[in-house]
């Protein structure tokens, strides 16, 4: 129990949701693919990598798939997969507004429980974009809609009536933050996002209710 106390006291880092937006202004017409890699805090210190494909549409749309996992010696027991995309909704001079929607699958395993969750993330980003740099604000909602729990014998020995199965509703967090990016050369983009999370309704906030992520895009 003492360890719980010190962990609560030892606030150490920043949170991140992986909601990066590309700089639409820095892409050329022949750059329809992108890959990205980032490090940051997404309810744990995580690594994220992914792929994006820009569609040939009247309004710019990019479909993306990414995978992130927290640090540790077991890299496949905890992870998050997002499938979705972002669309450029409004453009006036250098001011752009983007909407993003993702379906999310998350998995988490400890000695006590295995969790698997389906969810979604919706967000909007508005900012000032130049070909070589950008700065924007974002707001969104990350929802774990339904979660399946499978408890280990350790927990079951402690409480024999504990139930496995699907649990609804699950968790959700609003997030608010800023993102800046810098275009490097003709195909690289470096970005940094920082912000805070707030649990839905009157729910208790995450232990570390912040986020931050540093990453790079490669467009080709």
């Amino acid at each position: 129990m003492k360890n719980i106390i010190i962990t609560l006291i030892t606030i150490f880092s920043i949170h991140t949701l992986s909601a990066q937006t590309i700089n639409w202004k820095s892409s050329t017409e022949d750059q329809t693919n992108l890959v990205f890699l980032s490090l940051g805090y997404d309810f744990a210190l995580t690594t994220q990598f992914g792929y994006g494909l820009q569609l040939n549409t009247s309004k710019p749309i990019i479909l993306t798939a990414d995978y992130s996992f927290p640090m540790g010696n077991k890299i496949v027991d905890d992870f998050k997969i997002r499938l979705g995309g972002q669309i450029l909704l409004l453009e006036k001079d250098s001011w752009l507004a983007t909407a993003k929607v993702y379906g999310i699958f998350r998995r988490h395993q400890t000695k006590l429980v295995k969790m698997a969750s389906f969810g979604s993330e919706f967000s909007a980003q508005f900012g000032y974009y130049k070909p070589k740099w950008s700065v924007s604000a974002e707001i969104g909602f990350d929802k774990s809609i339904v979660t399946h729990l499978k408890h280990s014998d350790i927990l079951r020995d402690n409480y024999q009536e504990i139930q496995d199965g699907w649990f609804i509703p699950s968790g959700g967090h609003f997030f608010y933050g800023m993102q800046g990016s810098k275009t490097l050369g003709s195909s690289w983009e470096l970005y940094l996002s920082l912000g805070a999370t707030n649990a839905q309704s009157d729910d208790e906030n995450a232990l570390l209710p912040f986020y931050g992520r540093l990453g790079v895009f490669k467009k080709f």
Binding site: S13, F43, P70, G72, D203, A206
Partner: peptide
């Protein structure tokens, strides 16, 4: 505190699955 430790990250990772009051 071990930033790259499995247990440290397990401790905070669950927050995205479950919230409540």
């Amino acid at each position: 505190l071990k930033l790259f430790d499995e247990l440290t990250n397990d401790f905070v990772y669950q927050d995205q699955f479950i919230t409540g009051s």
